[in-house]
Amino acid sequence: MIAVIMAGGKGTRFWPRSTVTKPKQFLTLASEEATMLQQTYARFRTCLPEEDVYVAVSENYLPIVKEQLPELADNRIIIEPDQRDTAPCIALTASFFLRLERDDVLVTAPSDQYIPETEELMEALRAAEHAAKTDGVVVTLGIVPTRAETGYGYIETIESDEYSSKYGERVKAVKAFIEKPTKEKAEKLIELPNMYWNSGIFIWKPSTIASYMMKFQPQMWSIFDLKEEEFRLSYSKLPKLSIDYALVEKLDRLYTIPIEFIWDDVGTWTSLERIFSTDGDGNLMLGQIYPFATRNSIIYTEQQRIVTIGVEDLIIVSTAEGLLICRKSDEQSVKNAIAALDTDQEGRQT
């Protein structure tokens, strides 16, 4: 089994700490000692030999990867010419290994997830590997939900003896993917016994990825036969598609393994409250912060001192990049706000 860590995301929901030049996977968010990428790499290296752990990263972040993982050999770095989301990245990964004539089972995993229970993770991956050895079979890890989360997609499995998996009791057939729900819908979904969060971790063979790419994304897949310069130009023009939308939601040989160990995708500021302890007033603070009558807030500052008086349920983040102030309940809107900010800045520059 081969692990490929995808490290090309932008992490805009962690703005202004996560920036275009140094996004969240290269920051010490879930640990004071190691970045998200370093933690993910170490997690797989405890279970897999050095030669079977790879990193896929866009070309602009290559220097950061080499700095943070000096032990990673150049031939284990899969370089994207541009950032085009997870579907092009995974297609590139499949092409990379097929050119090497390696069709071992791949684990394609994000670089920014918090999974402290490494042994339990590997048990699930080994069970998934057994199923994914079969041509055309794709397995994902489904997280047993613990709250009505609106920031994740959901997986509905088939709970019937008629559809019991031949790959073992842990492996369940997937009935449907459900897009990120409203709060009201999420509250209903978590009451169902056959509903799981989509972890974004997929287990499949390069040849399986290739066959589905040829079927569902033939135009995208065709560019991997081009010569270097043509390929680079074509890759940069690919649509930004998630692997869920481009392939996975279309599959009928899709399975999931439910897992109950601690997992978090560390996608928003409030996710840090599930990793670190808050103070007696429910605040999570880092930096020179002086709170008065402040409750249930996340406050982070790198340089400036921050004084808060009479605030509650806020996210306040101050870095050299900028200042963020928002209600916790609105944090899913940070991504859209930063996209609008970037568009405005590009407009002013032109």
Rank of each mutant, 00 (worst) to 15 (best):
residue 2 I to N: 04
residue 4 V to W: 11
residue 5 I to A: 11
residue 14 F to Y: 14
residue 17 R to N: 15
residue 24 K to F: 12
residue 25 Q to V: 12
residue 28 T to F: 03
residue 31 S to A: 09
residue 33 E to Q: 14
residue 40 T to P: 00
residue 46 T to I: 06
residue 50 E to F: 06
residue 50 E to H: 13
residue 51 E to R: 01
residue 56 A to G: 11
residue 59 E to P: 01
residue 62 L to C: 14
residue 71 E to R: 04
residue 74 D to P: 04
residue 75 N to E: 08
residue 77 I to N: 07
residue 83 Q to M: 15
residue 87 A to C: 06
residue 91 A to L: 09
residue 100 L to M: 13
residue 101 E to W: 03
residue 101 E to H: 12
residue 102 R to E: 07
residue 103 D to G: 10
residue 103 D to L: 13
residue 105 V to Q: 06
residue 107 V to I: 10
residue 109 A to M: 02
residue 114 Y to T: 02
residue 115 I to T: 04
residue 117 E to G: 07
residue 119 E to M: 05
residue 124 A to R: 15
residue 128 A to C: 06
residue 131 A to C: 07
residue 132 A to S: 11
residue 134 T to E: 15
residue 137 V to Q: 03
residue 142 G to C: 11
residue 144 V to K: 15
residue 145 P to Q: 04
residue 147 R to V: 08
residue 148 A to T: 03
residue 152 Y to A: 01
residue 158 I to Y: 02
residue 160 S to R: 07
residue 163 Y to F: 15
residue 167 Y to E: 06
residue 171 V to T: 07
residue 178 I to E: 11
residue 182 T to V: 14
residue 182 T to S: 15
residue 187 E to W: 05
residue 192 L to M: 15
residue 192 L to C: 08
residue 198 N to T: 12
residue 205 K to D: 00
residue 206 P to N: 04
residue 210 A to L: 04
residue 218 P to V: 05
residue 219 Q to I: 12
residue 220 M to S: 09
residue 222 S to I: 01
residue 223 I to Q: 06
residue 229 E to K: 15
residue 231 F to A: 06
residue 233 L to Q: 00
residue 235 Y to A: 15
residue 240 K to A: 10
residue 243 I to G: 05
residue 244 D to N: 10
residue 249 E to C: 11
residue 260 E to Q: 15
residue 265 D to W: 10
residue 267 G to E: 10
residue 269 W to R: 05
residue 270 T to R: 04
residue 273 E to R: 09
residue 275 I to Q: 00
residue 282 G to R: 02
residue 287 G to K: 08
residue 291 P to D: 10
residue 298 I to R: 01
residue 301 T to H: 11
residue 301 T to Q: 09
residue 304 Q to D: 06
residue 305 R to G: 15
residue 308 T to Q: 05
residue 315 I to D: 10
residue 317 V to F: 09
residue 319 T to C: 10
residue 319 T to D: 10
residue 319 T to K: 02
residue 335 K to V: 06
residue 337 A to G: 11
residue 339 A to V: 08
residue 342 D to K: 06
residue 344 D to R: 13
residue 344 D to F: 08
residue 345 Q to P: 00
